[in-house]
Nucleic acid binder design. Structure first.
Lengths: 259, 259
DNA sequence: GTCAATATTCTCATTTTGTGAGAAATGAAT
DNA sequence: ATTCATTTCTCACAAAATGAGAATATTGAC
């Protein structure tokens, strides 16, 4: 391990349950001499990615807040999505949370969320939290619209030992793609239902989903149909907006996008 | 330039007005061969700090969203502040924005904000946006509570050429510290007033301010007094919460904290 | 104040790693 | 098939990170 990976390794130590680290402890955890860790930490502090807490401990630094704002302002998906989410929670006329989510490595991550007023519950999907790939309407819609090759990498191709278990999932995904949306209940949070529709802009390498989370017990059939329509139309509005913000899909490097 | 600074230099290219860069353009802007930039970009993409857009361009990546959430959950100031801001905008009973801000390099940055319902305006202070040090109640409260040495570094010591101009500011800061809060109008946004109170926890190296932004024309004297009380008491609540979350301020490394 | 303890920085010989110029490869569009 | 821009690769070289330990700086306790 060396160079950039040293910095990544230090940052990756920090998570919800371990939010402050001292140099000796990092040194132990990483198996790297403390003099090296001191240098790494000093650079990260200078850059604002870490900052000194008390007792010689360090925590994540404010640079992440700054870059998060930049991304919020400039990322086409997030920018287009935030306005749409606002509309969705307004028009839903029921306690709910609206989410915009995307693929992130081999997980799904929400990149924007908005709750309706007086919404008494929270969704497990929250901005910045990686979530499982194969559960919940939000994730399944994304899976359903991945290119075959990429899907195989993620859930294992036909010769994967657990291919049998994936059979049902794959059939469900085909169905979702046909239908144009996905509706689930209690797959992630007990008692909560999810309704999700795809936001796909291939030329931009964008594969995302717009979803609504509401109390399952408060949804009768007509209500559910109304919300499905709301989510589907909001998702296509976002798709439209993204398709038009695009620079002309002119030259090369298309493959990189789809990754 | 080399090593870590190469990565920082690439990330620093991105801002509100330049949100997508191609490798050749970066290479030009940085004066670094494109083969090197390609390697740097590849590493940043692998880490999620950049991602491929279309046309061979790159934009900021989703890792910032992930780390921002971690920080939101684990940073003591942000965690303690968010609850307080929520209370403040509820009890303000007027359109307003509540902010929690801190020192960030030689600027002031908001780390948490919340708007009251139906607030028709926005404050220039917004989460993650660096703001000037010497304007606005939010910033001045922070300046007023900085250790003398640090203040001198920021606004220039007695022998600074522009020392004369700082005389008035320094007197104002002394006054703010005595008073325990700061109230300004139209210093940042025309027509908006700011009311700020300090959140100081020296042992933790925390120097921050909690502030409220409202329409100046809607504030009569009694209203203003009420809001000052609200802000001051919310700020001391946050201070209390932080003082207690502290690990025993036992061993060393106190100096690093104050930076 | 002195002292002990710990965090942090510094030094330097060694080795690894990044660097840079150009060639080669990739993949999409014509 | 060919063209074009993007991206990766190669390799000799220079530069930077590494690690062990010493030196320094701070702090809390006495």
């Amino acid at each position: 391990m060396a160079g950039f990976s040293r910095f990544l390794a230090v940052l990756r130590l920090f998570d919800e349950t371990a939010s402050a680290w001292t140099v000796p402890v990092m040194s132990d955890a990483l198996g790297v001499p403390s003099s090296t860790v001191y240098r790494t930490v000093r650079d990260l502090v200078a850059a604002g990615f870490l900052e000194a807490a008390n007792d010689g401990a360090y925590r994540l630094g404010p640079a992440f807040i700054e870059y998060d704002r930049l991304l919020r302002l400039t990322d086409p998906l997030v920018a287009a999505g935030r306005a749409a989410l606002h509309e969705v929670v307004l028009q839903a006329r029921t306690p709910c949370v609206a989410l915009l989510s995307r693929l992130y490595n081999d997980q799904v991550m929400c990149v924007a969320d908005e709750a309706a007023r007086e919404t008494p519950f929270r969704s497990s999907y929250e901005r910045g939290r990686p979530m499982p790939l194969a559960q919940g309407a939000t994730s399944k819609v994304i899976l359903a619209h991945l290119p075959a090759r990429q899907l195989n990498k993620l859930i294992g191709g036909p010769k994967d030992p657990r291919a049998a278990q994936h059979g049902a999932l794959r059939r469900e995904l085909v169905d979702i793609r046909k239908r144009g949306y996905c509706s689930t209940a209690s797959e992630i949070d007990p008692g909560l239902a999810g309704i999700a529709a795809p936001v796909i802009v291939r030329e931009a390498g964008i594969v995302a989903s717009l979803s609504l989370v509401a109390n399952d017990s408060m949804l009768d059939e007509s209500q559910r149909r109304r919300l499905v329509l709301l989510v589907v139309s909001a998702a296509s509005l976002v798709t439209e907006a993204l398709a038009h913000t695009r620079n002309p899909p002119s030259t090369q490097a298309r493959s990189r996008l789809v990754q």
